[in-house]
Structure formats: C-alpha cells, structure tokens
C-alpha cells in the first residue's frame, strides 16, 4: 500500500518533472520518512496527557518515592488494625514486601574496595598525596608528576572522585 503522502504529491509533482530533463527523485530520507504514512488506527479524539512532557526523571522518581512512603504508612496502619481485631491473623498481601522502582535498587557496596592504578588499571598499592591519584609503580609515578592539574582531575573524575579545590 503506497504511503498517503506520495499519492497526494503526485498531481503537483507530475507537470514539473515532465518539463525538466531529470525527474525529481525524492531523497532517500524522504522515501523512508513515515511522517505521512496513514495511521487509521489512531483515535482522533484523543488529546495528549498534559503531564506527559512536563515531568523529568527527577520528578518521576520523587513521585515514586512519595507514593512508596504513603503505601508503607497505609499498610502499617492496616496491620495495626488487623492486629487489634485479631491478634494472629494477617493476610498474605500484607506480609509481602511490595517492590518499587526505588526499593529494588542495589545498596551501596559494603565490601572493601579494591584499589587500581588510575592510569593503567593495574593493582595499585600507592597513592600520590598531591594529586590523589593511585599508581602502580615508580614509572607511573613519574608520569603522574608530569601531569597537569586538570589532567589529574580528569583521571580522578573517571573514578568518580571530584576533588574540591583547596
């Protein structure tokens, strides 16, 4: 089935192509564009949800956090009420911990962090006290000493350390 756009364009395009020696071939991108493809399946009465664009990631996660808090509160009161009525019986639903986007996030690591050389990635027993960079051996220390302050900072940033300028 031809796209709607091509049928619509034909009457206007035809006379111009007859006159010129080389017919106007639509560019590859124009041919691939689905902008004018028919979409009969769409409900024409639908209006876009207003909150669709306004919320950024931070707002969405904040909303999620707030909802989780309310939910937990609600369940706690429910459980208390249930215990007041009947000391032993609690429903399965309440026992289940409801997972949310934030609650399933992995916790920070509690294992001791291994130290790797910032330049080469090898094991690094040493840290340069001036730049804070970790290094593997003497030759890499020489290199660190020759680094500019901004380059050293970038190396630190790759490890997620953003030093405060003293």
């Amino acid at each position: 089935m031809p796209p709607k756009g091509s049928t619509r364009k034909k009457p206007s395009a035809a006379p111009s192509t007859e006159g010129s020696a080389t017919p106007q071939i639509p560019t590859l991108a124009e041919q691939l564009s689905i902008l004018s493809a028919p979409r009969p399946f769409k409900n024409s009465n639908y209006t876009k949800n207003s909150s669709r664009r306004t919320k950024n990631l931070k707002a969405v996660l904040g909303q999620e956090r707030e909802r989780e808090r309310v939910e937990r509160e609600k369940r706690r009161t429910e459980r208390e009420e249930a215990m007041e009525i009947d000391g032993a019986a609690t429903s399965v639903m309440i026992e289940d911990d409801m997972p949310t986007y934030l609650s399933i996030e992995a916790p920070p690591s509690v294992l001791p962090q291994r130290r790797y050389c910032d330049i080469t990635g090898l094991e690094s027993p040493y840290t340069d006290p001036i730049s804070g960079l970790r290094f593997h051996d003497k030759s890499i220390y020489e290199l660190i000493k020759s680094l500019s302050a901004s380059a050293a900072k970038e190396y630190l940033a790759a490890r997620g350390v953003n030093p405060i300028v003293k």
């Binding site: 992995a106 690591s109 790759a158 490890r159």
Partner: peptide, 18 residues
C-alpha cells in the same frame, strides 16, 4: 565493581550474594 567508575553501588557478585 561499579565503584571503579565512581558508581556507588554493590556489584553483581555482592548483589547475588545478598
């Protein structure tokens, strides 16, 4: 070890263990 790249999170091994 996401901490190598500055992400403060347990790595796959630690999470599996938990």
């Amino acid at each position: 070890a996401p901490s190598m790249a500055g992400v403060d999170s347990a790595g796959l091994g630690e999470v599996l263990q938990n």
